[in-house]
Computed example of a mutant assay.
Amino acid sequence: MKIVDVCAFYTPHGGGVRTYVEQKLRIAPQMGHEIVILAPGDHDEVIERGPQARIVRIRSPRLPVDRKYWYFADDNRIHDMLDAEMPDFVEATSPWRSARIVAEWRGSAPRSLVMHADPLSAYAYRWFGEIFSRPTIDRRMSVYWEHLRRQSRLFDFVVGANGDLTRRLREGGVSGTVTVPMGVEAGLFSPQRRDPRLRARMLEACGLPDRAGLLIAVGRLAPEKRWPLVIDAVNAASRDMPLGLVMLGEGRERRAILKHIAGNPHIRLFEPERDRATFATLLASADALVHACEAETFCMVAAEARASGLPVIVPDSGGAADHAAGGAGLAFASGDAASAASAIRTVIAQGLRPAATARGMDQHFADLFALYAKAAAHRRQAA
């Protein structure tokens, strides 16, 4: 089966979508499929990743709000490329312009909209949640919901990575919803990577001795990640116990986050670790992961922490919440720094070290491609 992913938010600068795409490019050929990623970029380019895997960059404008990303500006160009590729299945992996472009393509291949983003949780619920209830916000965002409902009728599936998102989409009248949970990179994340000497060095960087608790937080430096809440929660919890926080991330909010840290020597912000094996060792060597974004569609870093035997401290809504289930961590009230601080105190005081459990990304793609193959076979029979 040949799958073309029209991926508007792929960027070589990193992030969850890039991690997902890189694994798809590796795993799909192993399963006998050909995968083509159509992604915007500064110039036209074909990046070969093997005989059945490639990224095709299409010259496109950069997003004004975040210069690390681009957007598709030429619908006809995408349609022509889909015609040339003749895919068996097409994915759109953003609910915005690229979804419309894929929906309006006149080809016969079945297609899916993969929800790699949850805009309502990332923006509307976060901005207005302290003033209005979610049903009220949904009513006020009726234009967005109608957009999703209209798009969904043009796709065979709308794929979500967590049950909470799928439920909300279904209740909002979105057609063809299905949950296909993601997973972690096989063989990389493990409690065996825990390194006491590395842990001691991270605590030393935070100006703390070995007996202190070590928290780690990972993600883009963007408003929806709620970094100030993480910092406030750690500051509050550290009044009762010595705590260090190592933050790994980059983005447009860096200056604001450093200002919020306010020179606290026990909280350190570092650039992301690009080497995956080194990152897995850093993760396993902490005492807990703390994450505050309730808009995650899956929360890859929480899954990676769980696979590393690390307890997770996460909000009680969105994709991150799933990873605290079964004693793997604690969920706190979304958007509540005091609740997060309480969860941090409990996890560190108890020295929680849950069993390492995680779904592999291989299983995710096996389930996803089986779904696609069934739809493609049904379409061929109908033709």
Rank of each mutant, 00 (worst) to 15 (best):
K2W: 10
I3N: 01
V4W: 07
V4A: 09
H13Q: 11
G16Q: 05
E22M: 05
R26W: 13
L38W: 02
A39C: 07
A39R: 12
D42G: 13
V46P: 03
E48G: 12
P64E: 01
V65Q: 09
D75P: 06
D75H: 15
N76F: 12
P87E: 01
D88T: 02
F89W: 09
F89S: 07
A92Q: 07
A92Y: 07
S94M: 13
A99P: 14
I101N: 05
V102Q: 07
E104R: 12
R106V: 01
R106A: 02
S112A: 12
V114M: 13
M115G: 14
A117E: 14
D118S: 15
D118V: 11
P119W: 00
F128R: 01
E130K: 14
S133A: 09
R134N: 09
D138G: 06
V143D: 09
W145C: 07
H147A: 00
Q151N: 15
R168S: 15
R170I: 15
V180I: 05
V180Q: 01
V184M: 02
F189K: 10
S190K: 03
P191D: 01
R194L: 04
A200M: 06
R201V: 12
E204F: 06
C206T: 11
G219H: 00
D232T: 09
D232L: 04
N235P: 13
L243R: 04
L248R: 03
R252C: 14
E253K: 06
R254Y: 04
I267D: 12
I267W: 07
E273C: 03
A284N: 09
H291N: 06
C293K: 08
E296D: 08
M300Q: 15
M300Y: 14
S308V: 03
P311C: 04
V312H: 04
G329I: 05
S334L: 05
G335E: 05
A341C: 01
I344P: 02
I348G: 02
I348S: 08
T357Y: 03
M361G: 07
Q363Y: 06
F365Q: 07
F365E: 07
L368V: 10
A376K: 04
R380F: 04
A382D: 13
